[in-house]
């Protein structure tokens, strides 16, 4: 009869939509998982601006569930996800970046992402001042209070462990060595949710068109 069923989702695909099979081949996800992520992506990308792209405000809203003020960490993560640097996270960028957080993703990818995250000024090094800034932001955003001298002690102690050549900055090689000895420092780089997103979020697979 030549009967072709059309998928209602196809006509409303987000502007940066990419083929889930291609994304799955380039990431730690299966095709079904990429499709599940698309359901999550649509929800996030239509939460405020309704344009199928994730804006910084939508990203922050999802992370904190409130439109609280600027967050250094959310800003940094958003900027690293926004690979094209055009102010929005497209679907492909969302999947490729989240893939680094898959528990099975290579540790070296996680370490490299974390290094970029902490290298606030993009100099290729994590400098003492940057680490101080990160710790102060962490404390501010969590309403914790530590004296300046306590912050200084934490930063100095961290540098005494990580900055092996003593030049007051952590280079990528020193970082690699440091995270090998301190794997807990990359704990936030693995999201158990991604291990099996289709099981964790069964509603996401309702629209899946492919069997893996």
């Amino acid at each position: 009869m030549g009967c072709v069923s059309s998928s209602p989702g196809r006509s409303r695909r987000a502007p940066g939509y990419e083929d889930p099979a291609v994304l799955a081949s380039q990431t730690s996800f299966t095709v079904n998982e990429v499709e599940a992520l698309y359901e999550l992506y649509k929800k996030l990308s239509y939460s405020i601006f309704k344009d199928g792209l994730i804006h910084k405000e939508e990203f922050q809203l999802a992370l904190f569930r409130t439109s609280k003020g600027p967050s250094l960490f959310a800003d940094r993560v958003f900027d690293l996800f926004d690979l094209k640097r055009n102010g929005v996270i497209e679907f492909g960028e969302f999947v490729r970046s989240l893939s680094i957080f898959h528990p099975k993703a290579p540790e070296s990818d996680k370490a490299a992402f974390a290094f970029k995250l902490y290298d606030l000024r993009g100099t290729g090094y994590i400098e003492k001042e940057e680490l101080r800034e990160l710790v102060v932001a962490l404390l501010d955003e969590s309403d914790l209070c530590l004296s300046d001298s306590a912050v200084e002690e934490i930063v100095d102690n961290t540098f005494s462990q990580a900055d092996s050549n003593g030049d007051d900055r952590i280079d990528p090689k020193e970082w690699e060595e440091f995270v090998k000895k301190n794997p807990a420092s990359l704990r936030n780089m693995s999201l158990p949710y991604l291990q099996d997103i289709t099981t964790a979020f069964p509603s996401f697979v309702m629209h899946s068109e492919v069997d893996d």
């Binding site: 999550l40 929800k43 996030l44 999802a62 992370l63 904190f64 569930r65 960490f73 940094r76 993560v77 989240l98 957080f101 974390a114 995250l117 902490y118 680490l131 990160l134 710790v135 962490l138 955003e141 969590s142 002690e153 934490i154 930063v155 102690n157 961290t158 462990q161 990580a162 440091f178 995270v179 301190n182 807990a184 420092s185 990359l186 704990r187 936030n188 780089m189 999201l191 949710y193 997103i197 964790a200 979020f201 509603s203």
Partner: peptide, 25 residues
């Protein structure tokens, strides 16, 4: 023993935790 800053950042939800993206369901 003083903790290291990266471990601190990694372990606190205010630091850098993407779980919120999935918990809004």
């Amino acid at each position: 023993r003083t903790c290291n800053a990266f471990q601190l950042i990694s372990s606190m939800s205010s630091g850098f935790d993407l779980s919120g993206l999935f918990e809004s369901e």
